[in-house]
Simulated scan of single mutants.
Amino acid sequence: MKYVNYLKDEHAAHMAMFNALEPLFPLISDVGIAMQNTIKNGGKILLMGNGGSAADSQHIAAEIVGRFKKERKGMPAIALTTDTSILTSVGNDYGYHYIFARQIEALCRPEDLVIGLTTSGNSANVVNAIEAANAIGATTVGLTGGTGGKLNELCTYNIVIPSSVTARIQEAHIFVGHSLCEILESV
């Protein structure tokens, strides 16, 4: 019983944040349609983030390549967070701020869609990668929180979760990621 009040407070904060997401539904729908168009036009989806956002990137990529709810052919998605040899060599040779931008330079094409997850919207390695994707002509999506940070100015779409609490933002990012996967599967 020691943590019951704590859990009640966390649940209330979680529910309040989720109730505040409704104004974002049209934007989330637009991103889902952009993802559908990316796949229809022969493109792929590239995802990245740090820490919990790296795990979320991998989770969403797995749902796209494998399946979310519907039995279907695999769709092309790559989490840029998974290849330790690339991450460590680029980090060593160019600096940690370029671990994703260098992969975007190598793997991204104009028909692709790039998703950067960063709770602040300011993670330098994600910002650099979004800038690189924009230079290539890809569609860019931010999944952020707080004020949206630098990604507000850089992304084609920036889904800004209305919270400044990292845990709440990450909880919402998974909801948004799952929603996008379901929209993608509805093709």
Rank of each mutant, 00 (worst) to 15 (best):
I86M: 00
K70R: 15
I159D: 03
A16V: 00
L24I: 03
G66F: 01
A55T: 11
L151N: 05
G43V: 08
G149Q: 09
I183M: 13
C181M: 13
G121I: 07
N5L: 15
G116W: 07
L27M: 09
T118Q: 00
L7Y: 14
G137L: 08
T38I: 11
H14I: 11
E185P: 10
V165W: 02
S57G: 14
I136G: 09
A106M: 01
V114N: 07
P76I: 08
M75I: 04
N19S: 09
H11I: 12
A124E: 14
E131S: 13
H14W: 13
G145R: 05
T139W: 14
I159S: 05
N19D: 10
I39F: 01
R67N: 12
H178P: 09
D9V: 02
F68Q: 08
E71I: 14
F18Y: 03
I104M: 04
E171L: 12
I174A: 08
M1V: 13
S179P: 07
I45R: 02
G148V: 04
I169W: 07
Y96A: 00
F18V: 10
E111M: 11
G146S: 10
A62G: 14
G137P: 04
Y3F: 15
T84K: 03
I161W: 05
M75Q: 11
I60V: 13
P23H: 01
I104W: 01
L117M: 14
G49M: 06
V114Y: 04
Y157W: 08
V114M: 08
M15Y: 01
S120G: 14
T140V: 08
K73R: 11
E182S: 14
G121A: 06
V65P: 03
I28N: 03
A20T: 06
T81F: 07
K40G: 03
H178C: 09
V31F: 09
S164G: 11
L184P: 08
L113E: 08
G66N: 02
I159E: 02
G148R: 06
S53Y: 08
F100H: 04
N37Q: 14
L117Q: 06
G177M: 13
L154M: 10
K73H: 07
T147Q: 09
M1G: 15
T166R: 08
G32Y: 05
V187H: 08
C155Y: 07
K69D: 15
A13H: 04
V127M: 06
V65R: 04
V176K: 11
N134I: 10
V187T: 09
K8N: 14
V127Y: 06
A16T: 05
V176D: 10
Y6V: 15
M75Y: 10
G52W: 11
